[in-house]
Design a protein around this nucleic acid. Structure first.
Lengths: 348, 348
DNA sequence: CTGAAAGCGCTTACAG
DNA sequence: CTGAAAGCGCTTACAG
């Protein structure tokens, strides 16, 4: 191998044209597969390009072309190392590539400043479309991009500004269903573990919880609702606390997978994992290997990502129909922990 | 909001110059913070830029600039929805952003054609550097990019071609250590579960297994080594089979987290999870919630990603030192399953 | 401190 | 079927 530590200048159309003995316009036509190039000339251009290792410069072509496309998408999620986010990214990326798009990926860490920074960075590179999870409060940066006319699809949560597509899951409906399954088993004291109240998904899931109880004629005990829990440790503490109540819950609904994990820890610690029912929203790896295996409301995360990608690609392709809010159905996956009846846990 | 469904043409330096009443060269200087711009003029330019919502076109500037930088990195991993890959990506992305770089992310699905396709796609967009996991056999596409002089750092596995940085973990050493811990507990019949033999990481881990046994004067039983296991199901079958041997293993070393998960399933199924020791390579979520909790060799995946990102950024910045192979130390995390002594599992 | 001209690699809009 | 000229948005290399 020759010295690969030195980056050589890339051959250009000019070089190919010189070697093939044609004009650069002819090379352009041949490279882009436009018709109106003689078979013999096309072959000579192809040979010259191959000999030089020529690869067209997409930035240059995009700069000059009428459509100005960079065939590039920007993805801004909270944390790409989260399974939810990474599964979304994977689905988006697969769909994007089918259409010849490449994907920029960034994590905003739920920080408005960082999100704005990433969006700015994407804008400087003139991405054709944006896929993002809107922050709970501050959606100014996203709204700004949208107002400039950048095609945008929001995931997991709806925008607070108009005229923008989004794809979410059946938070309320599926939670209501899950809670009704618990009441059907006879549970009356069902605890609710929720993340930050400002999160739309958790508002929806809480609403579903209330609705599910109401359908069964159960009045929600205020002492059983623990919200603003951030992370598994907070959930663990909350459940431990709940178990110490005079009338402890016979079932727990954890509105997020990290909270379900914290609940498992608390139940295991109290030795009550087979006595108190548990259902979580969002699946997590090896949930089926725990004892009991953890029943969950499973989002179709890949479908979420695929749908969002399809939407933004359609917008880029010129779809000017009114903004859509697509809801992807979640599925109840019974594994054991959610099928524990209340009798066994009646204590005292 | 005005009609955000129509993408307006972006304002250019020309527009800003016209509004500020200066030449575009002056706008260029002001925007790039070059010195030699009068305070009054700088202010007028800033105002005009803000009024128009001007944002420089990085592609155009990169095209003309001497350094040709796109301040863009390409990441090509096997599957971005894998926790290992997504944790790497997250670390790379964080590091990249600190240096003003944005990251293109793609999954090659272990398919040479797809990897070549992604690399091509990245090359057309003139990324400044490449971070990739080399495929077991076909490294031609990566070698090709490297020969063109594209800065490149390989992750998890070394290249089969020269002059290229890579970052891997202590596969052999840590496996040897883990096996020696098992022999120190008295284990003599220790099974090995491995993925495809062509994978360098699994060759290394197998070598570490052999070495660890040798240190304890144990001769590896050929019947206890099961390789070419692809995924948890294969591992589960293999362990079930091992447990049926006349002299079953008293301990299992699973050379990958998915294989460890399969092993857990088999042990649980046989009711032997508390009787047969298990150690896995690579951590996995909630491994600590299983009963017994699963002991693992934990890679420092974030450090892997950070190191790789730093290396490629240094190369891009002009570092011409000889190629490095950095090895990141892994850690043994005892959780219970690896601390099961052999006596309890002596059967018959 | 400021600007006119040329050019990065490519496509557009013509002309032949 | 092929090509010369102009220009995308910006920076370089000059000149003043």
């Amino acid at each position: 191998m020759d010295d690969s530590r030195t980056r050589r200048p890339e051959p250009t159309m000019r070089d190919v044209a010189a070697l093939a003995g044609v004009s650069i316009k002819t090379v352009s036509r041949a490279v882009n597969g436009e018709r109106g190039v003689g078979a013999d000339v096309a072959r000579r251009v192809a040979e010259a390009a191959a000999a030089l290792g020529y690869r067209p410069n997409l930035s240059a072509s995009s700069l000059r072309r009428a459509d100005r496309r960079s065939t590039t998408l920007g993805v801004v999620f909270e944390d790409l190392s989260n399974p939810f986010d990474s599964t979304l990214l994977r689905a988006v990326e697969a769909r994007a590539r089918e259409s010849g798009f490449l994907v920029f990926a960034g994590s905003d860490e739920d920080d408005p400043a960082r999100q704005a920074e990433i969006l700015e960075s994407l804008a400087l590179r003139r991405v054709d479309g944006l896929l993002a999870m809107p922050l709970a409060g501050h959606q100014d940066a996203l709204r700004g991009e949208r107002q400039r006319g950048v095609p945008m699809v929001l995931l997991d949560r709806p925008p607070t500004f108009p005229d923008t597509d989004c794809v979410t899951t059946t938070n309320r409906e599926s939670t209501s269903e899950a809670v009704q399954r618990l009441t059907a088993l006879g549970h009356r004291r069902i605890a609710f573990l929720g993340d930050r109240q400002e999160l739309w998904t958790h508002q929806e899931r809480h609403a579903g919880y209330v609705e599910g109880l109401a359908r069964a004629g159960v009045r929600p005990g205020r002492d059983l609702v623990r919200r603003d829990l951030r992370g598994p440790e907070a959930a663990q503490t909350a459940v431990t606390d709940l178990l110490g109540l005079p009338e402890p819950p016979t079932a727990v609904f954890a509105a997020q997978n990290l909270l379900a994990i914290g609940a498992v820890r608390a139940l295991q610690h109290a030795g009550l994992e087979h006595d108190v029912a548990l259902v979580g929203f969002d699946d997590f790896p090896v949930a089926d290997l725990l004892r009991p295996a953890v029943s969950v409301v499973q989002q179709d995360v890949s479908a979420l990502g695929r749908t969002a990608a399809d939407l933004v690609l359609a917008r880029i392709a010129g779809d000017r129909s009114p903004a859509k809010h697509v809801t992807i159905p979640a599925t109840l996956v019974p594994r054991g922990s959610g099928e524990v009846p209340p009798l066994r846990s009646a204590r005292g």
